[in-house]
């Protein structure tokens, strides 16, 4: 460590790679960890961006189809076999419950309504969970990244001061590389943390919007189904 630092002083090599190589094992671990965190952050960011964009597109498409006046039975038949996400999943879950209840000849309209709502809620929470997945790790990286980087800096400065004490020179050329190398850890920590914080804020907001939209749809669909139930049950009761 001391020799590396002194060698850097001798050569005047202050490039990024040499700074990294001069660093101690702890600082190196911190740096590597922070770079990994940065990679993970950006992976989540890219993934979320793509999935949210796709989900939004699917929502739009589904809503277009749903409100187009198409028969819900038909829509259900087309969607039932697919892997559905978002609004479609909620729709399919509700329709499946509806179908099952009517095929077996449900007697209580209130019980049917409640079952359909439950099924929609479960699906909705599952979908919302999918949207919010991994946002927690973004939050962690955003808040802990600077601290981890600071830890690396403190350790690096400690070791570089020890090296200075060993070399018995207070020349700035001796002090500077060690501090620069230690500060690199904080820099990497900030580089990882800042996008993580921004992305976390953005994606939590997006996920909130998405689940609100899903809830709105679920309520609307629940109202439609409730009307349908009333319409279907009254003729039966009248017939009896």
């Amino acid at each position: 460590m001391e020799q590396a630092g002194l060698a850097a002083v001798a050569t005047g090599d202050v490039s990024l790679w040499s700074l990294f190589m001069q660093a101690g094992i702890i600082v190196k671990l911190v740096m590597v960890g922070l770079i990994g965190a940065s990679i993970w952050t950006w992976a989540i960011v890219i993934d979320k961006y793509i999935s949210f964009a796709r989900a939004r597109r699917q929502f739009d498409q589904f809503e277009q189809v749903f409100w187009s006046g198409q028969s819900l039975e038909e829509l259900y038949r087309t969607l039932a076999d697919r892997q559905n996400v978002g609004l479609a999943a909620i729709f399919v879950a509700a329709m499946r419950e509806w179908k099952k209840s009517f095929e077996r000849g449900a007697r209580s309209p209130i019980g049917l309504q409640m079952r359909i709502d439950r099924a929609m809620d479960v699906t909705l929470s599952r979908e919302a969970e999918a949207y919010e997945a991994r946002l927690g790790s973004l939050a962690t990286i955003g808040s802990a990244g600077p601290f981890i980087g600071l830890f690396g800096t403190v350790v690096g400065i400690m070791t570089s001061f020890q090296a200075i004490a060993g070399s018995k020179s207070t020349n700035l050329a001796v002090v500077a590389p060690g501090i620069a190398e230690a500060l690199l850890a904080t820099a990497i920590g900030l580089v990882a943390a800042i996008p993580a914080v921004i992305a976390y804020n953005k994606f939590t907001a997006d996920a909130g919007k998405m689940s609100a939209r899903m809830e709105g749809f679920a309520d609307e669909f629940s109202a439609i189904l409730s009307r349908q139930i009333d319409e279907k049950l009254q003729p039966r009761q009248a017939a009896q």
Binding site: I39, W40, W42, A43, V45, I46, I50
Partner: peptide, 13 residues
Amino acid sequence: MKGSLGTSLVVHV
């Protein structure tokens, strides 16, 4: 997710 992780890795490198 794998794709985005790969992308992120490549971008970082």
